[in-house]
């Protein structure tokens, strides 16, 4: 079975209006840039996006916001995006903010075949409203459900034709978790090699989780906060 697609346009051919889509990345680090560009080009609308952040005004998921392609955003932190804040305050965009660890673990649970997890994050806060809780060893935990996403769009450093993925540095973040959680997982990679060319000891995401893979045509890899130190003293 062939998992390799020519480009983002082909790999995302069946994403239609109203789908629930997970997107990997933390800030602008490790985001599936080529998949996002393809979604913008396809002009699909009413999407629900699950991603830690919402990009910035002119990059990442911010590009989808600008074109008003999102119905709902599920994220943990959405600062750095004025258009997002505007759509949120006017009610154009439905937003669910959830703790970052909860977001990650709900992805993980999905990929591990577990319907729910228990976490202390949010106990006693508005995040806990309407949720079941249980006490274990004297401490209260919220029950949080595994995500149910139609597509997961992830970015890896290297991938092979069997769908195995290796991530680089902190660009790993949510990518391996979301890769496990999509009904259909589409991976874009910087380097695509034949099966057998990656060391099996170094694989982060085994190919069983990856349905489609393509080599991204371009990577801007924009830096959000460029910080440097003065040369060594």
């Amino acid at each position: 079975m062939n998992k390799v697609f020519k480009d983002a346009g082909e790999a995302l051919h069946d994403i239609s209006d109203g789908k629930i889509i997970m997107l990997g990345g933390f800030g602008l680090c490790g985001i599936p840039e080529n998949c996002i560009a393809a979604l913008v080009k396809k002009e699909v609308k009413e999407l629900t996006c699950i991603s830690n952040n919402a990009g910035v005004d002119d990059f990442g998921i911010g590009l989808l916001l600008k074109k008003k392609q999102l119905k709902k955003m599920i994220a943990s932190y959405v600062g750095e995006n004025a258009e997002f804040e505007r759509q949120l305050l006017t009610g154009e965009l439905e937003v669910e903010l959830i703790p970052q660890g909860t977001l990650a673990t709900r992805c993980m649970a999905s990929g591990y075949g577990m319907p729910a997890i228990f976490t202390p994050a949010g106990v006693g806060t508005e995040v806990a409203e309407g949720k079941e809780s249980r006490v274990f060893n004297g401490k209260e935990y919220l029950m949080e459900y595994a995500f149910d996403a139609d597509f997961a769009l992830v970015k890896a450093w290297k991938g092979d034709t069997a769908g195995n993925l290796i991530y680089k540095e902190t660009a790993r973040n949510f990518n391996p978790l979301m890769a496990m959680a999509g009904k259909i997982t589409i991976a874009e990679v910087e380097e695509l090699v034949e099966a057998g060319q990656l060391n099996p000891n170094e694989i982060h995401t085994p190919g069983i989780y990856v349905h489609r893979i393509f080599k991204g045509s371009v990577y801007e890899k924009r830096i959000e906060q460029r910080t440097i130190r003065q040369s060594a003293h």
Binding site: G27, A104, Q225
Partner: peptide
């Protein structure tokens, strides 16, 4: 600066001997 290597404040950073990367979960 390495765009794939940032901290939680999205600032570019570096690693040290003994550093380790892992996923968000």
């Amino acid at each position: 600066e390495d765009p794939d290597l940032i901290n939680a404040g999205k600032q570019t950073i570096t690693t040290l001997p003994g550093s380790a990367f892992f996923d968000s979960a």
